[in-house]
Design a protein around this nucleic acid. Structure first.
Length: 462
RNA sequence: GGCGACGUAGCCAAGUGGUAAGGCAGUGGUCUGCAAAACCAUUAUUCAGCGGUUCAAAUCCGCUCGUCGCCUCCA
């Protein structure tokens, strides 16, 4: 709320409540959605690593202008239409390794809460009814604009909205409940109230659901930067007029996802869906790592070139963990303990500082750089390997991209690798090469190293 | 017009008062039957530009330039 970094102190000891503005269920998940999911996920995972119990909710907006228009265009009932997209979003989160939130409330089933809120706001004098719609009277909420820093006196009203569509007393007011149109009435998209048949506006949806599930004040509210104004200001206005208490103690806004220098959005015509990227052959973990790798507050410029670079960086990490797991243990190394403790300390130090993921990853790469020669020289005993794995596992509980499962060496593959090694010892290169060919057909690439062959399974279905 | 974010090597990206992390690409090397991979070393006298404050500035202040976002229902 201060627009600065602050030390995080949850309201209740080691319990943290978190609310994330979720997507509107009228389009397939694109990379901009994915980034928001990943940022929220990173926060949750790190809080959990630090020992907090996180109670998190993310909503789905399944009743608003877009969903109604989308359902109309698709010729589907609203619920059937939104259901399809909600499924896609849930799938996308699974693909990206996003941990499940405590709950995913839908706006459409909380309309009664919203109607009650509207009643109370009118009662308290913060809202008014006009021609069957309910509007929030911004002039009554003095602290308006604190989060985003907008000065209501200076903004250009009507710059992006056709004011003729509304009948507000003041163009700065916003809609809480909207009178259902004739078309909406015909489709049953309406809720009976004292003021007539209405449907909810966008801002009241989030206020209603966040406070309903997490109480009057939550610890952290997160979403994308461009929701700050007006959405979050409106959310705050609603909730705080109601309770007189802050809606959220901390606000965390993720930066935009840019494509070709522009915000990825339907209007810009530069939307890249998650599915498109997967179809191009990039894996879920490559996408996750790309979206993870930039500090959450910074804009992230998406390009396939960037994905390629990420793929290579990830390979370097994979190479390290593969050697760690697959090579037989050797002799102990005196300095490795220092490397290990340094890694964990630096990683957490970086993440403690406003989730500085770049610095955290820098610590990981530094560790790999230092430990690689040791590994190369076969100087790690079993205990040290396990120590490294323990730390990497903790780190990976946050990153979710490391490969730390033990070498799943199929007996068939193992037999072929041994066969090739025997042939190589006898300098029977033709036999050795033909086995290598056979392994390649099975999707296994062999890398000969000083201390024996290390193999790599191709990424099919990864 | 207002508000805000940003500008660090060929590219990506940390660092926000004490002398430029890390990744990708490049270059050189090591290893190797071949191949591939890997590993190592190396790569910014300089942080958009100009001025100021300071013993000390990429970091603070001012101005300029450039990019992007928001300005009441697109998330």
């Amino acid at each position: 709320m201060t627009r600065k970094k602050e030390v995080f102190r949850p309201i209740r000891g080691d319990r943290v409540t978190l609310y994330a503005c979720g997507p509107t269920a009228y389009e397939s998940p694109n990379l901009a959605h994915c980034r928001r999911f990943i940022v929220a996920d990173l926060l949750v995972r790190y809080l959990e690593l630090k020992g907090f119990t996180v109670e998190s909710y993310m909503n789905f907006t399944d009743i608003d202008d877009n969903t109604i228009a989308g359902a109309e265009a698709a010729g589907l009932p609203l619920q059937e239409f939104t259901e399809k997209y909600i499924d896609e979003f849930m799938q996308a989160m699974d693909t990206l390794g996003v941990r499940r939130a405590t709950g995913y409330p839908r706006a459409s089933v909380h309309v009664q809460d919203m109607i009650e809120i509207a009643h109370e706001l009118i009662h308290k004098g913060y809202a008014y009814e006009k021609h069957g719609s309910i509007y929030f009277d911004i002039s009554k909420f003095k602290r308006y604009g604190r989060l985003s820093g907008v000065d209501l006196g200076k903004i250009r009203v009507g710059r992006t909205v056709d004011l003729d569509d509304y009948e507000k007393d003041n163009p700065r007011d916003f809609t809480l409940l909207k009178r259902s149109t004739l078309a909406e009435l015909k489709k049953g998209i309406f809720f009976e109230t004292d003021w007539g048949n209405v449907r909810p506006g966008w801002h009241i949806e989030c206020s209603a659901m966040s406070t309903r599930y997490l109480g009057e004040t939550l610890d952290i509210h997160t979403a994308s930067q461009n929701l700050m104004f007006p959405h979050h200001e409106n959310e705050i206005a609603i909730a705080e007029s109601l309770t007189g208490k802050p809606l959220a103690n901390y606000w965390l806004h993720s930066g935009l996802l840019l494509k070709d220098g522009r915000k990825m959005a339907a209007e810009a015509g530069n939307v890249v869906t998650l599915q498109e990227v997967l179809d191009r052959g990039y894996t879920d973990r490559e996408i996750r790592f790309m979206l993870l790798g930039v500090h959450y507050r910074k804009p992230l410029r998406f390009s396939y070139k960037r994905l390629d670079a990420v793929r290579k960086a990830l390979k370097r990490i994979d190479e390290f963990t593969r050697k760690l797991l697959c090579q037989p243990p050797g002799l102990p190394h005196p300095e490795v303990a220092v490397f290990i403790s340094g890694l964990e300390r630096r990683f957490c130090q970086a993440m403690d500082d406003d989730l500085n993921i770049s610095a955290a990853l820098g610590a990981l790469f530094d560790f790999i750089k230092k430990t690689n020669p040791v590994l190369q020289a076969d100087s790690l005993d079993r205990e040290q390997k396990n120590e490294i794995l323990e730390v990497l596992k903790r780190i990976n509980s946050v990153l979710g991209v490391l490969r730390l499962e033990h070498c799943p060496l199929a007996p068939e593959i193992d037999r072929l690798i041994r066969q090739r090694e025997r042939a190589r010892q006898m300098k029977d290169w033709t036999a050795a090469d033909s086995v290598r060919e056979e392994l390649l057909r099975k999707g296994v690439t062999i890398h000969d190293t000083v201390s024996g062959p290390v193999w790599e399974q191709s990424d099919d279905g990864d």
